[in-house]
């Protein structure tokens, strides 16, 4: 009787385990499905919200007109898009070489002790909130650009400009690219480095010709992640970019980026349906660009992997 009871308990326990297993698995499935269609949902909402402006203005006007005047109902996004591209592009041009060289230093050249010290510093830099970046850029870079750098090139500038914004973004991107690249570089088998070194290549030749090649996919995705961060950065850029939706005439001219524009105008324009819709269109453009770059990155990655069968 007792034994029977025991086995019954055991069986019931088994069933309970199985049921719990089933419930948890299905729950996870549901969550996963919701999250993975989230980006689609965001796309739909942005699209439906911007349908108002898309109905009344042609999409080419919105994208390629330079006339930005919300109070008259003119929403030409061209200067803002150009501003976004230049600010992001310039920041990456600054950030990529510096980050890659730093990553190589940390992963390949620095002695272990220094490497250990450097890691937490990078983590701290990665953790600095963007609003603090903006504040520091305003305090440090803006006067520097206004009083020294811009006059050096013979240009008068308030310091709130494209150049300042790009530098700020570059610093924000450093820790992202560096830590991902360090990870990639250190995951290379030691023997591969040895193979290159033992035919008499110098360390730098090994880095240049073997390590960069072997980690190309990871470097690409690190750069893309950095791009994503820079492209979408809102607050820090908003604080130093100048906020004037004009195609910049020089490095030291003020301009505006898409996210920064949304942040500064949404509050005041959200009560006017057409303006709100126009800003939603801006968000939609932002979203689509991010999407395209992600897919592009994926294709690049696939190709690189296939090419060297990594």
């Amino acid at each position: 009787m007792l034994i029977k009871n025991g086995s019954f308990d055991k069986k019931w326990l088994m069933d309970k385990r199985k049921i719990r297993d089933l419930i948890c698995t299905k729950l996870m499935l549901i969550i996963t499905i919701i999250v993975s269609i989230l980006f689609f949902l965001i796309f739909l909402i942005l699209l439906s919200k911007s349908s108002l402006i898309l109905g009344s203005e042609s999409i080419t006007d919105l994208l390629f007109s330079s006339n930005w005047n919300p109070s008259n109902g003119n929403f030409g996004y061209f200067p803002v898009i150009v501003g976004t591209i230049i600010v992001t592009g310039l920041s990456l041009i600054i950030a990529i070489p510096i980050s890659l060289l730093s990553a190589i230093f940390i992963a390949e050249y620095a002695p272990r002790k220094i490497r250990k010290i450097l890691r937490p510093f990078l983590d701290v830099l990665a953790g600095v909130p963007s609003v603090v970046f903006g504040l520091c850029a305003f305090l440090f870079l803006v006067p520097l650009v206004r009083d020294f750098i811009a006059p050096f090139f013979g240009i008068e500038s308030t310091g709130l400009c494209l150049f300042t914004a790009s530098i700020t973004l570059a610093v924000m991107v450093f820790p992202i690219i560096i830590s991902l690249c360090v990870e990639a570089f250190s995951s290379i088998p030691l023997e591969l480095k040895e193979a290159s070194l033992s035919v008499g290549a110098t360390k730098w030749e090994t880095v240049k010709k073997v390590i960069f090649r072997a980690t190309a996919p990871s470097i690409i995705s690190a750069i893309l992640l950095g791009f994503g961060r820079a492209f979408g950065e809102t607050i820090a850029v908003n604080m130093v970019v100048g906020g004037i939706p004009k195609v910049p005439s020089s490095l030291f001219a003020p301009t505006e980026t898409l996210p920064s524009l949304i942040a500064s105008k949404y509050g005041e324009l959200m009560s006017i349906p057409k303006s709100e819709s126009a800003l939603m269109f801006g968000a939609l453009v932002l979203f689509i660009v991010v999407l395209i770059f992600n897919l592009l990155g994926l294709i690049l990655l696939r190709n690189a992997k296939k090419r060297w069968k990594l």
Partner: peptide, 13 residues
Amino acid sequence: LSLDILWGIPSII
């Protein structure tokens, strides 16, 4: 892939 896309979506969005 969709998580990567979400990762890249700016916080303002």
